[in-house]
Design a protein around this nucleic acid. Sequence first.
RNA 1: GGAGAGGUGGGUGAGUGGUUAAUACCAGCAGACUGUAAAUCUGCCGCUUCGGCUACGUAGGUUCGAAUCCUACCCUCUCCA
Length: 371
Amino acid sequence: MKFKIKNTCDFARASEIQLSRGIINTPAFMPVGTNGTVKGLTVDDLNETGSEIILGNTFHLMLRPGDKLIKNFGGLHKFINWDKPILTDSGGFQVWSLGDLAKISEDGVKFSSPYDGKKIFMRPEDSILIQENLGSDIIMVFDECTDYPSTYEDAKKSMELSMRWAKRCKEAHKSKSALFGIVQGGMFKDLREESLNKLIEIDFDGIALGGLSVGESKQEKTEILEFMCNKLPEHKPRYLMGVGTPEDIVEAVRYGIDMFDCVLPTRNARNGQLFTSEGVINIRNAEYKDCDEPIDVNCKNKVSQNYSRAYLNHLHRTNEMLGAMLATYHNISYYQSLMNDIRSAIKDNLFAKFIKDFYNKRNLDMPDGPI
RNA sequence: GGAGAGGUGGGUGAGUGGUUAAUACCAGCAGACUGUAAAUCUGCCGCUUCGGCUACGUAGGUUCGAAUCCUACCCUCUCCA
């Protein structure tokens, strides 16, 4: 993996991550494809949206259809017919999101499969091996996503465990794929710093920020971002895991984040929420019943331009699968065009203007921050 | 013509004398969703000048009290002629 910063604008930066399967232009949004599919989109759709990398999930794919099966098919890329980079999450987030179905010990995590209750023990080494079996381009370390809220003691204990696991992941990592470490530490700056220093010492190809957007306030998240932006190594990709809304992304780019992933554009599309250049709309609402405007006049792609809001409203009311598909196509296209605009603005040294316009269009006050 | 079943809030459909303005589902009106146990979940859903008012085919009756029991009528469906 090669990382090349092309332009900067205060903390914000536009760069290239070069992987054997392709180049990722950052700041980048990575659509989430947990089960080996970005729900509702074909790989042709994904390409049309401008997506250069997608996510897969260790935990889900290990259970179904199984990482060995995928390996025998020649890897996840071949299995799902996607030849661009794939980042795989380690299963660490599932430790958190599955709650009582996961039991943590020093050695690893005992999961109960949500599908059949079958007990699975996953050690950091297992997670790495599974991700290698999948043929992932960017492998994430197996971590414990710290709960929110958390006491200092719990956050510290959790962070320290994640760091010991990070070291084991590094030692278990054998393939040529990139390996990213994940900063934990909850809402405590000194723990975040300690975590980061530990990861730098172990030496990863990229640094991710984990444990954010798990219930904390916007202010708390911003404080952590602000604190981290001065400390993250400059010459490595920075990945803010699980974030976020367009507003979250724009803000994080100001603090120097390069990579994002989030289920919002896909999940919310299925639930009728569209992200548009003028803010969020719920396409099921009565006001769109006879609205003959396109989904988003400012989003230049075949779906956002050629399908009316009234038609999408109808499809969602009648629970037609095309409604979810078109909404997902639009949302991912919107996110990718947003990322594209962000990159262009940084390259042209117009990021300050971009941010101002971005908040103006949404009638929001521009938060304080760099630039 | 005879026999039987039934008519419940926008729809389907529970309830068969008293926590019943009335279960549930659908429809309708909104909201939530942030490294996906999610095409999911939540709230509202007769009228109201917020004190009440009107409601279970219609009209009477029994009862302290009726969607629930009785009588008549109207209507619907099934079977037999």
